[in-house]
Design a protein around this nucleic acid. Structure first.
Lengths: 370, 370
DNA sequence: CACCCCAATGAGACCGGACTCACTCCAGTT
DNA sequence: AACTGGAGTGAGTCCGGTCTCATTGGGGTG
């Protein structure tokens, strides 16, 4: 029963020999191209079956130039937002015969450069990426130049003409902020994981990715529209690890003009903020209003149910994959930014600001403002 | 400025030509093997730099036989448990120069067969898989036979001698059930996504994966040890999609001898169960005690904080990758099941059974039993 | 000074498919 | 009957690396 240790797989040549035809004929029969007589086709196919022949995808890629593989370069698989997006992309791609190679960058440019390099070396047919830093894009341009179509997911890079799939985060953030302002909140905290030169936002500071820049931009927009001057110290960056998120939250709460509402830039940040609030025995929304980006399955179940700015993560993955497939099909229409709609889902974590409690109607329970 | 559209990448031959040496010499200098004089090495390396030479990983794989790629075949990336495990594996693998190809199976055997086939065709050096069905393993054996070392994640397949990384789920489930029994619960519901011939467990039924079989086994163990006969109708299977999970929960609650406690087989099931409980205005843990497998970041934050049976998902991924690397290094020690320790984290979703409320001490607030 | 050894080098085989080219038949034209 | 055309076929090249093998030449040894 114990066969030779590694009965290495049959090749076209093996099949050809078994079928008593030339390698070329066997390849034709197997590949379904060129002219092959019925009897030969039968013999070859039977022999292949018999030998359990499977084409070597590597060899095939060598001279077709295509590998039927798409590289996905994102910050972190374990972030449910990206997890879902990957799933969306992966579903579409597989349906079209493509496989997915994955790389995590942790938002580090060097890791991203590495990843892109590897993808190129492996001759992926295309790349889906969430560029970590809009200012370090040489490797991305290199990938494009090498002929690998690319689609940006969740972000775009100003000045780079590349397809992208995003959500109208600026509008969404603006809307949420406007509602908070209307509820009497003046200090609105914002905590994000983006890497920035300082932990506190400084006017005019440029952020490495559009995704967070838009969130913050939307908030500032709303302040501007309301004619109110926000305190930059309310905007906290560099909060990626649990400890730094905690520190940022603490810092916010310890401010003399501490914000009465907090917006978390994503669900992972949000979770940690909530923990700190709970530890400090601050009630949400009575003491502090809270909302976050990304609607997670658990957001309606925590206490209180969280008001969120939802992004269609799965659909974003689908859209990115679809756009990429379009490029692979040879489309050369100008690069296009696809902006999907996000949605503010009002639950119970937002209420009128403490001091304004008499002026505005209650927001508890998910009643819409206005 | 606009160069030729696809200035296809430089090859060893190009570099050799530029450096005025033979292809063989260039290859030696580039690959760092064989004997190469210093001046030649310089010239070649400079030329490579100049031409921006990058070796074609495909071509390399063709004759080394190794692709520096590991296939990961799991049910679903978007399940945070697998997401974290993938991250763990991916971190270790990348550190050792391997890349990861991903495939989702949705627990469907046909998708799994497909995925494995593709991996083999791409000549992955090894495979990490969570086999969907312990009875349909021909393709897995084929992979082993083809010389691809494999490691099972989260599951093992009885009768297949393959490395695996698991958690002592049976003990964990047994412990949890024992505590529930001690708290006076007699009816303990169990809801799982496993595919089974019927939606209700039937004694002697074999389940397709060890992971769920162990969970259920542990529960039955505890019943047996306590000398109590469980009602098989308390054990609900086939609850994968939100609707089926809801239906299973409803069915459980509508039973004449409805369980007073529910164990969810994973966090995605748990979330849906919680929603149904909430809709029915059933209080946790006053009306129904609840606990679930997998500790998610949100489990302490929902209302009430959820008691969980935690699995070290990230570490499991790390362990699986480590085991695989060991095999790739040529180790031929007998296959080994690595069993990591899970942990019961007691929070506030478990309390004494209604009828037994006078006999047992309160469990609210995370106090351990006994 | 003849001899040996080995560093240094180039030519070319090879991995496993995809594909080109040249050649053979034979049916269909004219 | 000579001629065209395309189906059917095999030999062989190519993709871009890795690696074997044979050859060269200079330094060390007896």
């Amino acid at each position: 029963m114990n066969e030779s240790p590694a009965p290495r797989p049959a090749t076209v040549a093996d099949v050809a020999r078994a079928a008593n035809v030339s390698k070329a004929q066997a390849a034709r029969a197997l590949g379904g191209y060129g002219a092959v007589s019925e009897p030969v086709r039968r013999r070859v196919l039977d022999a292949a079956e018999e030998l359990n022949y499977r084409p070597n995808a590597l060899a095939r890629s060598m001279n077709t130039g295509r590998s039927q593989t798409i590289g996905v370069v994102i910050a972190e698989v374990e972030n449910p937002f990206f997890g879902l997006a990957i799933r969306g992309a992966s579903d579409v791609l597989r349906r079209h015969g493509y496989d997915v190679v994955l790389a995590n960058t942790d938002e580090r440019t060097d890791a991203e450069e590495d990843a892109i390099r590897v993808m190129l070396d492996k001759r992926v047919d295309g790349i889906i990426a969430s560029p970590a830093d809009a200012d370090a894009t040489a490797h991305l341009s290199a990938a494009m130049a090498a002929g690998s179509p690319m689609v940006f997911l969740d972000r775009h890079v100003p000045g780079m003409e590349v397809d992208s799939v995003e959500v109208d985060l600026r509008r969404l953030a603006g809307q949420a902020t406007a509602e908070l302002l209307e509820l009497g909140h003046r200090g609105i905290g914002f905590i994000s994981a983006v890497q920035a030169p300082s932990d506190v936002y400084e006017p005019g500071m440029t952020l490495p990715n559009s995704s967070v820049a838009d969130r913050l931009g939307g908030i500032l927009d709303a302040y501007a529209r309301a004619g109110i001057e926000p305190d930059p110290r309310w905007m906290r960056l560099n909060a990626k690890a649990p400890e730094t998120i905690r520190a940022a939250t603490q810092a916010l709460l310890d401010l003399d003009d501490a914000p009465t509402a907090i917006i978390a830039s994503d669900s992972m940040v949000g979770l940690e903020v909530l923990k700190v609030l709970r530890e400090r025995s601050l009630r949400v929304p009575e003491d502090v209003s809270f909302l976050m980006f990304d609607d997670m399955a658990w957001s309606p179940l925590v206490d209180p149910p969280i008001t969120v700015l939802s992004q269609p993560a799965y659909d974003m993955g689908v859209a990115a994959a679809t756009a990429l497939l379009e490029r692979l099909r040879g489309s050369s229409t100008p690069p296009c930014r696809r902006v999907l709609e996000g949605e503010m889902i009002r639950r119970a974590s937002v209420a009128p600001a403490r001091a304004a409690v008499d002026e505005a109607p209650s927001m508890v329970g998910g009643t819409a403002v206005r």
